[in-house]
Design a protein around this nucleic acid. Structure first.
Length: 310
DNA sequence: GGGCTGTACTG
DNA sequence: CAGTAC
DNA sequence: GCCC
C-alpha cells in the first residue's frame, strides 16, 4: 500500500506512515490478533487502528482494493527508476501503459531510460553474498588506483539484510593527500577500468566527480543498481552513517539533532546552527572519526548496523 | 493547520 | 524551479 | 497518515 502512495499518488507522508506501521507491526514478537495490542502504540492513530481492524476481520482492506483498481497500470510506470508519481500519471495520460511501451519513447531522462531498459533486473533482490563479491571487486580496482583506500558496502547490506535492493559503496582514504587520486575512482576514465572488466555498464548522474549512480553488471548476474561515493576521511563517519540508514533512522536522528541541539546533521558533517538577528549560518562540522562518536554527540546509544532496520 | 531529513542532480 | 533519487 |  505504501508503494501506491509513493509511486502513484505522490503522498510521501502517508506512504511513510504506512511503511513505518507495517514494519512496526511486523517487528513485534507476536502476531497481532486484536486491535487492543496496537491501540496505544505511538504513531498509530484512529485510521490505522480501523484499517488493522478491518484486515483482522475480513482479511482484506477495501481502501487498498479500491485504490488498486483506480490506479491500475499507473503503478508500474511509477515504479520505474527515475519516474515518480507525477511523471507516471503524465505518461499514463499520454497513453503509455506498460514499461515496454516506454522503450522507444525519446523524451525520457537518461535515468529513466536506464530504468526502463533494466526494469526487470533492477527489481530483483540481490543476495548479500553478491554484494560482498561486488564490494571485494571494487576494492580490488580501487586498490590499484589508490593503495590503502577504504571501501565499504553500506546500505541494507551493512545492516545485515539477507538480500538488498541495490549496492551502495563508500570509499575514502585514511591519508588525506591520497584523496585526490582517489576521487578519480568515479571519473569516467577510471570507470573504464571497471568497464574493461565488462562489469560496469554506464555512467549516470553526478557531474560532481565523487559520486556515481548507475548500473553494474557483474559476473553474469542480473544488472544491478549501484552507487559509488567517494568522501574525504574526516567526513567518512557521517557518510557511512547516512548511507547505512535506514532512512527512517536518518530522519529520526537528524530531526533530533535539530530540535534538541540546534544541529544540522547530514552525510557531510554535524554542524551547529548559529544565528544573529535574521542571519542563520552553520559552523564547521563537529569532528567525528567514527559513527559511535556521532551518536555520543547526540546523546544516543550506539546501535549496531543490524539494529538500524527501522 | 503545519511540519514531517538534508542534499544533489537533471531539464 | 519542479521532479526525482538517495 | 500522525502529532503538536
Amino acid at each position: 500500500m505504501w508503494h501506491l502512495y509513493e509511486d502513484v499518488l505522490g503522498d510521501q507522508w502517508r506512504s511513510l506512515i504506512y511503511r513505518k506501521t507495517v514494519n512496526k507491526l511486523r517487528s513485534l514478537p507476536y502476531k497481532v490478533t486484536s486491535v487492543e495490542q496496537i491501540r496505544e502504540m505511538y504513531g498509530v492513530g484512529k485510521s490505522l487502528v480501523k484499517m488493522v481492524k478491518e484486515i483482522l476481520g475480513t482479511g482484506q482492506l477495501q481502501k487498498l482494493d479500491n485504490l488498486k483498481a483506480q490506479v491500475g497500470e499507473i503503478q508500474v510506470l511509477g515504479s520505474v527508476w527515475g519516474i515518480g508519481a507525477i511523471q507516471a500519471r503524465e505518461l499514463y495520460k499520454k497513453g503509455f501503459r506498460t514499461v515496454k511501451d516506454l522503450e522507444n519513447y525519446s523524451s525520457l531522462t537518461s535515468m529513466q531510460r536506464m530504468g526502463v531498459k533494466y526494469y526487470d533486473d533492477i527489481n530483483l533482490r540481490i543476495p548479500r553474498d553478491e554484494v560482498a563479491d561486488t564490494e571485494k571487486f571494487v576494492r580490488g580496482v580501487v586498490e590499484t588506483l589508490a593503495p590503502g583506500a577504504w571501501v565499504n558496502a553500506a546500505g541494507s547490506y551493512r545492516r545485515g539484510k539477507p538480500t538488498c535492493g541495490d549496492v551502495d559503496i563508500l570509499i575514502t582514504h585514511p591519508d588525506g593527500s591520497r584523496f585526490t587520486s582517489l576521487r578519480c575512482c568515479t571519473h569516467s576514465s577510471h570507470l573504464h577500468l571497471l568497464c574493461s572488466h565488462q562489469d560496469l555498464l554506464a555512467r549516470l548522474g553526478g557531474t560532481q566527480p565523487d559520486m556515481f549512480m548507475g548500473i553494474f553488471h557483474f559476473q553474469g548476474k542480473p544488472y544491478r543498481r549501484i552507487d559509488i561515493k567517494v568522501y574525504p576521511r574526516h567526513v567518512y563517519a557521517f557518510a557511512l552513517l547516512a548511507f547505512t540508514g535506514n532512512d527512517v533512522l536518518n530522519r529520526k536522528i537528524r530531526f533530533l539533532a535539530r530540535v534538541k541541539f540546534g544541529y544540522k546533521l547530514s552525510d557531510q558533517g554535524l554542524f551547529i546552527r548559529e544565528s544573529k538577528k535574521k542571519d542563520v549560518w552553520f559552523t564547521e562540522s563537529i569532528p567525528c572519526e567514527t559513527e559511535r562518536e556521532i551518536f555520543e554527540k547526540l546523546g544516543l546509544d550506539y546501535p549496531e548496523p543490524h539494529d538500524r532496520n527501522w
